[in-house]
């Protein structure tokens, strides 16, 4: 497949910018071309401020093709994201996107397990929404956060096997679409599992019978230690697993080789570019254990 002209450079208007607890922000911009081609796992490369001309990579949380908007969820961690948070409604942002190899799911595996940690939640939410279009799929989404969740959790009405007593908090957006979700945190938030996302995932996997477990495929995005733990979990249960990686970027389009991760291939180690060879990789390639 030709890769020519797959990425758009857009002067996008800020439509909404919501500022949430834990220095998290949800940004919605008008970017028709990007919305049209966005896939779960693809990201955008954003100029946060003209004073910081290097772009910052941010995953696409949701995209509406019809209305042409794209949403991002990001957390302030440094100068770039701090300046991005200052951009108000009506301002223009230079955005390059959508970029990257997205998640791809096997519809024969009917029980996808989606695990998102912190600002790794966006691609999981996008992926869950996309899977809803496949009527045979029953995705289960586990979201983890060590700061208040960027939404108001609510008690779930969807039954999920293996959930410990009291683990009832769910993400309303997914709940409204009939997608099962549960939340995990070590901060003791009400209704959330107290512990790591991978521990909650084990509860769920252990409650499935052999046949159901064989239908699980794992998808994950989040901090590096979480991804490593998810990759280990997938290996323990012998499940296929895709992870979305992060690395510092310059060009964002495959030109500079600045954003590499080491992967294992049949012919030995290789350096792959997170921006265009990823950000989604097979877990076994990145974490060969």
């Amino acid at each position: 497949m030709s890769t020519r002209s797959t990425i758009h450079l857009v002067e996008a208007t800020v439509l909404e910018h919501h500022h949430l607890d834990g220095e998290q922000h949800i940004l919605r911009v008008q970017a028709d071309d990007i919305a049209a081609d966005a896939r779960p796992g693809s990201f955008a490369h954003i100029t946060c401020d003209p004073c910081l001309p290097m772009r910052r990579p941010i995953s696409i949380l949701r995209a509406d093709r019809r209305q042409g908007w794209v949403e991002f969820l990001y957390k302030v961690v440094g100068e770039g994201t701090r300046r991005l948070a200052e951009r108000g409604e009506g301002e223009l942002l230079s955005i390059l996107g959508p970029i990257g190899r997205p998640f791809s799911f096997d519809t024969a595996r009917r029980r996808p397990l989606l695990i998102g940690g912190g600002v790794g939640m966006p691609p999981m939410i996008f992926l869950a929404e996309t899977m809803r279009g496949e009527k045979d799929l029953q995705p289960f989404v586990i979201l983890g956060s060590e700061v208040p969740f960027p939404f108001t959790a609510r008690p779930s009405t969807v039954m999920v096997p293996g959930m410990p007593e009291g683990v009832i908090a769910a993400m309303p957006l997914l709940e409204d679409r009939g997608i099962a979700s549960r939340l995990a945190s070590t901060r003791g938030y009400a209704g959330c599992f107290e512990g790591y996302v991978t521990d909650l995932a084990r509860h769920w996997l252990d409650a499935l019978d052999e046949e159901a477990r064989g239908q699980v495929e794992v998808f994950a995005c989040g901090p590096h230690p979480m991804l490593e733990a998810v990759a280990r979990l997938a290996r323990d249960y012998n499940l296929p697993c895709q992870v979305s990686m992060e690395e510092f970027m310059a060009c964002g389009v495959g030109g500079c080789a600045g954003c590499v991760v080491e992967v294992q291939t049949e012919t030995g180690p290789a350096m792959k570019r997170v921006c265009v060879d990823g950000p989604v990789f097979e877990a076994g390639e990145v974490f060969p254990f």
Partner: peptide, 15 residues
């Protein structure tokens, strides 16, 4: 050199 890979990487960008 080093900014555009092996020559065609930037053609991913429309325009």
């Amino acid at each position: 050199s080093g900014c555009v890979g092996f020559g065609e990487e930037y053609t991913r960008v429309k325009g």
